[in-house]
Amino acid sequence: MSAEVELRGVSKTFGSVEALAPTDLSVPAGEILTVLGPSGCGKTTLLRLIAGLVSATAGTITVDGVDPARARAEKRIGFVPQAPALLPWRTVRANASLLLDLNPGRSPATPSHSVDELLDFVGLADFADARPHELSGGMQQRVGLVRAFALDAPLLLMDEPFAALDEITRTEMRHLLTRLREPHGATVVFVTHSISEATYLSDRVAVLSPRPGRVASIEEVTLGRPRRPELEDSPEFFEVTTRLRRALGIGAHAG
């Protein structure tokens, strides 16, 4: 139920702009890795490369030993974009099952959780027949999460999914995501510019420095699991956020 991701010497150049310098990175099965860095440091490019949405200028990427394009065709990637990208003409339930409805030959025969169960889990059971415009930003992004989890994909790729939300909702969302993933155990690559988000969610954090984007350091997050909201008030949590803040500072200095 979880996939390995392997990047070897992967770089990406757009025209004459080097977005990502040659990068080696391996994400073991079942790990939550966040990619942390300031805006425009190539984190989204890195994620899009793993998703097979853009192709690398050099280097190789594999998802469970296969090319991202094939992993994509086999629906082994659950993608959560930055904007919720809900289709306004579909109900919440229909939006949540969108990825299952597409390319249906490759959908899981017996998903571990139905769309309705997942909607209930994220507190949207009463809104299943509503249209996206009737939902708040946080609720819309919860539909986005359900849509990705419904696929039962072994790899989840999340591109700053909570970046547009207010601080309070944003905190709730990372708590929800953690609980949503627990029974599932999928590998997650999560892009963010929020230090507390990276701390709460990850097993490891890849700190990126900008222009060209490169992995400045990899930080282990030595906090136990399961993680619960109280963790954010603990000294251990504070210790990790301090370390990440320093790593980001050092990264920017070196760049």
């Binding site: 994509r72 990637i77 990208a85 289709l87 990825l99 390319n103 696929l151």
Partner: peptide, 18 residues
Amino acid sequence: ADPAARELLASVDASRWE
């Protein structure tokens, strides 16, 4: 058509027809 939605459809390799 929403570019984010286009990317989302591409992430599961939706056909041109879809």
